Computed example of a mutant assay.
Amino acid sequence: MSRTAALASFVESTPPGELTDVTKAIKSILGDESIQNELTPAFEKYNEEQFATVKLPGNSEEVIVSSYNSLGGSRYYDVESQSAFDFDHSTQKASKVQSYVLDSNHADLVKNLVKSLSTHTSEHYPKSSLGVYPTEDDTQIAIITVASKYSPSNFWNGRWRSSYIYNPFSGSITGSIKVDVHYYEDGNVRLLTNKDISVSVGSGATASEIIRQIATAEKKYQEDLNKAFGSLSEGAFKALRRQLPVTRQKVEWEKISGYRLGQDIGGGRSR
């Protein structure tokens, strides 16, 4: 494996909200500040796959960067703000914002989907960004939601990503939900999940019907995750630990959701 490929693998596996830290670590290890240019392609791939978000100059809302709304040459567009912008994948900053008019046979449906999706995300994802874009051949529509929450002072970061492709002719909705959470206080625990979604609303469905199906699928997956976490404390997680932790006190498993992994269970430092 070449050096560039090896470094790119570090970038691609970076947990949410930690790209700057990983980049600094790579520079420090190699003692080479110029490595940033070498990593630009990896940054672009990472940002598009992770649905990176950025605030446009003069705009309070964050917009999404993805392969679905790429105009080429590190330029992207946003339907809701009717803007196109340049995005620097190294610094994750936007510039050269201009007005942009969507040219699509599904323009009306796209705009209605943005409104319905905005209502859904505001109810279920307090801090999130969304995007609805026609596919490159204008035969289908991509529907994207990303919700990130960073708490580096408490040693954890997390991101929810959901992306779907809606076919207006068949009425099919296919896509996936991805959850990535990293906890790194006195240890290194990471949750990575990927749930494939496939539902149908029939051809000619309204925007509200499409988003209703998506909301139902996401609610069910969140419920499944909650059940899995509940069984984890009584099953796999309990089996991984010694009967008594280093604190020499028994773990109250029924209260496991309230523990801080590094400090309370592992006997880490107090703050």
Rank of each mutant, 00 (worst) to 15 (best):
G17Q: 03
P16W: 10
G17F: 05
G72M: 05
L56K: 02
F43I: 05
V22L: 13
Q50K: 14
V22Y: 03
G72L: 05
Y68P: 00
S70K: 08
A6M: 09
E18H: 01
S67V: 04
A8L: 01
K24N: 14
E62F: 03
N47H: 11
L7T: 05
N47F: 00
P16Q: 07
Q50H: 13
A52H: 08
G72D: 10
A6D: 13
E62P: 00
E18N: 04
G58E: 08
T20Q: 04
L56N: 02
F10N: 09
S60R: 13
G17V: 08
I26T: 06
L56R: 04
K55E: 13
F51Q: 06
L7G: 05
I26H: 06
I29L: 13
L39M: 11
A25Y: 06
G31C: 08
L71C: 04
T23D: 06
L71A: 08
K24R: 15
E61C: 00
S34F: 08
E38D: 14
S13V: 08
I26P: 06
A8E: 11
V54N: 05
S67D: 09
G58R: 05
Q36L: 13
S67W: 00
K55W: 02
I35T: 15
F51V: 03
L19W: 07
L30A: 10
Y46F: 14
K55T: 08
A42G: 06
P41W: 03
E61K: 13
V54P: 06
K55N: 15
Y46Q: 10
S60D: 15
V63A: 04
I35P: 09
F51I: 04
E62T: 13
E62L: 04
T53Q: 12
A42T: 08
E38K: 12
E44L: 09
S67Y: 00
V22I: 15
I29R: 10
E12D: 13
V63P: 07
Y68F: 11
T40W: 01
V11H: 01
N47G: 11
L19E: 05
Q36A: 11
P15Q: 06
F43T: 07
N37V: 14
L30W: 05
E61H: 02
T53S: 12
E62R: 14
V63N: 03
E12R: 12
